[in-house]
Design a protein around this nucleic acid. Structure first.
Lengths: 219, 219
DNA sequence: ATTGCTAATCACCGAACGGTGACAAGGTGG
DNA sequence: CCACCTTGTCACCGTTCGGTGATTAGCAAT
């Protein structure tokens, strides 16, 4: 290997990573944010820290402090993305379907929410984080998430009103809580309270039960 | 200060902590276990570690390795206590009440479970832990908990069977999931999906909604 | 009093953490 | 060409973590 030093001076990445991200702040910021989201989604909030994110982004942690003001700012940037989550993951129309009753609406909402949460590991980790810690970080994230979700629900609801005599806020809180815990538990252990949740058939059972619950309350 | 060394030789704890727990293995083991449970209940699983437990128990961490074989063994010892949790926290009879239908049973079970979970911070932390991590530790804990709970439910059920045509396992999984997430979220943030959960009145609303859901399914 | 067992403590290790200040590298305007 | 500003990197700090010998301290039997 002749002139090894001269070659080594240029990192070997000629064939490994063609993109170098050299002196490009915007790209680096995006890389950091992407690494943070990926890390949080894949590893969970347990080992989520400055060092891990910097390692994942392939840059120095100092840049995280410079560009985001530390982990807090980075987490807030993640929270800002949650608004787009709703737009990306959940259709904002009814797919040509007519929702005649509040029960129709809630059935569709809960099933959509179930599938969306099942398919989004980042969101699951955030939900798990919310019920595990009470730091300012998490509170901000939680707020952003609930706000985005509430807005989406409002848009879907249209002019439909819940039946009189039913505390829809409380009932819906329980239903959404059920979906969240079910999906979280399934993602971690593949089951929830004795109900296996691995195969498509398992999930179909869960969906049927969920519909039955919703219809049991709202008809 | 004459003979300061001699005085310092005896720790000042003469007036601070009358109990010394000197060379008493059984007592030390209990102190460690109690400290672990207290720490887990009050601080959560995030900062739960060998050093923290040793600090909380007021002894050296080496003893945790000796007596429990490390954190894993200690966690298992906590899991072994979960069986007694059911016995302590939840009555195993029906309080002289006659449960005529499966709906009666489930209403009573869910409300009992709700209150029991609300009143037990340790159990809440364990549930939050279960949906946040997937280590062997947590899996063992989870298993112990679900086993104890299933046993209790079985004892309560007696000969009552769910209505035909209803997938009770799936429905009940959702209902228990709802209770768990509701209580966890409330404990952390005082609310769940927009439903405030602080005052007794708030919880009464939640209980009414829960009853409505159960009755909606099981009549 | 001496021996021996065991409960309990101490001292230390390497690693990882969050955080910070100093410095090198790369474009840009004069 | 030079000075300047931004981007990126490096080295280091103090602290905490999990984990492991080596050591001390209390009690019982002989």
């Amino acid at each position: 290997m002749p002139s090894a030093n001269a070659v080594a001076k240029v990192p070997i990445e000629a064939g490994s990573e063609p993109e170098k991200r050299l002196r490009n702040r915007a790209a680096t910021e995006q890389a950091i944010l992407a690494a943070a989201k990926r890390l949080l989604a894949e590893e969970g909030f347990q080992n989520f820290g400055i060092n891990a994110v910097a390692r994942g982004a392939g840059c120095d942690k100092q840049l995280i402090y410079r560009y985001y003001g530390g982990l807090d700012g980075l987490v807030e940037a993640i929270g800002a993305d949650l608004g787009s989550w709703v737009r990306d993951r959940i259709p904002d129309d009814n797919g040509g379907m007519f929702l005649l009753t509040y029960g129709d609406l809630m059935e569709r909402l809960t099933l959509l929410f179930l599938d969306a949460l099942r398919g989004d590991p980042l969101m699951r980790r955030i939900v798990a984080w919310e019920v595990s810690e009470n730091t300012e970080q998490v509170r901000r994230l939680s707020e952003a998430r609930s706000k985005a979700l509430a807005g989406w629900i409002d848009r879907m609801r249209g002019s439909l009103a819940p039946p009189k005599g039913i505390d829809a806020v409380a009932v819906n809180a329980l239903i959404f809580a059920a979906v969240q815990h079910l999906v979280l538990s399934a993602a971690v252990s593949g089951q929830c309270a004795g109900l296996a949740l691995k195969t498509a058939k398992d999930w179909e059972k869960a969906a049927v039960a969920l519909k039955r619950i919703v219809r049991g309350v709202y008809g």
